[in-house]
Design a binder for these strands. Structure first.
Lengths: 124, 124, 124, 124
DNA sequence: GTGGTCTAGACCACC
DNA sequence: GTGGTCTAGACCACT
């Protein structure tokens, strides 16, 4: 469900966020479907519940999840997410891409990367 | 030295960062060369010193500049911000791009954006 | 029943929430009266069911509605969301207003905004 | 410096955020001035460092602080904060105010509250 | 049972 | 020294 790599430099909660984000976006977790509870997912991944909390909280702020205290945590629908997030992402895309271009990363490399990403996503 | 466009949606400190980054990368400002002081540059661009401060500290965090308190701010040599930052950026690029792709932003739009960014950079 | 304005900047689910809140508060929908099902209301407004879901769950969290899984969604009586929520709201009002005042938004602007909001509400 | 009230329903990290936000906005803490370290402030308030971390992290996301890992945490200048935050706040202001109005809180009460807030802020 | 907050104490990378 | 992450375990309010 969510792949963790402890040797990765990325914090665990980021990896959890990454995994869950894709599950929601790809509708592997359907809109308004309940996610495993904080404790449950923590147990399954054998990590601390606080780490899951952090991931859930961040994703709620980003608009991917919503939580009803006492009831559980649920996936948002695509539509729920305002285009604000998209604008934010595009702005970040510009910043990062232009920095990469001037670190002399060839534009073609970035194209290829995008192709790979697109292919990868289709498989889910 | 640094071009500002007040009608642009991008915050001014981003434009300053953008401009300085280029100057450092292209060695127009040489490694270990001292940059103008915060107040000085602010005066030259007739903007608020805090805006410059923000740009300097961001660029320091990114590894392009370093500052010696009480002495001034200096350009890093290329060596100090090697493939590490580049790997970080590529990872962020992947994360953001794949999220955009799933928000159904067409790949072609992102291509176009990159083209524009590249053109923009060349002009500086 | 609920007026939607697609040209409005406000997200649709906010407009739905707004409309339903008024209907409950003004007892147009009586306490413990059943609301239309998610699918039903979505069809009537010709919008996506998830948007209704979002509105329903927000209003449930706010205490205006409650839902019995498998049975439907119902209006709360006034009693269930008493001064507690009001105290919460006033506290948030203070927090946000004082932040706005210090971002140097003129008090008069906020007055005007309140006038507009009040006028808008009366029309429903 | 920051007042805590343990009998308050508000979480401690919210109270810390509230206090620090005002200190930054009112320039009691000057732009780019260093704040006490996470551990230091935790000790002074006799609460857990993690609680301070949470407050610092939230305020960084809101644009009031920035942190340089290994160096410390610093106050942003007013200018640093994009008008995005202001737009966000106004939208929240509308939502909350209109809900209060329909909970039949008289408009005049809200006016008075704003007056008090403005007076209070001036004293700082 | 659920999410949410808080504490205590540890470890890391960076400066 | 600093911020940042993570764990372990406790308590609360709400369903």
């Amino acid at each position: 469900m969510v792949q963790l790599n402890y040797r990765d430099a990325k914090p665990i909660y980021e990896q959890v966020k990454h995994g869950l984000r894709r599950l929601v976006i790809t509708h592997v977790i359907l809109p308004n479907e309940q996610l495993p509870s904080v404790r449950e997912l923590a147990a399954k991944l054998t990590i601390n519940p606080n780490t899951i909390q952090r991931a859930y909280r961040d994703l709620e702020a980003e608009g991917y999840l919503y939580s009803l205290p006492g009831k559980g945590t649920f996936a948002s629908g695509h539509f729920t997410m305002p285009s604000k997030r998209q604008a934010e992402l595009l702005s970040q895309f510009d910043e990062i891409t232009s920095e990469l271009l001037f670190l002399s990363v060839p534009k073609e490399d970035l194209y290829d990367r995008m192709e790979q990403l697109e292919k990868g996503e289709r498989q889910l």
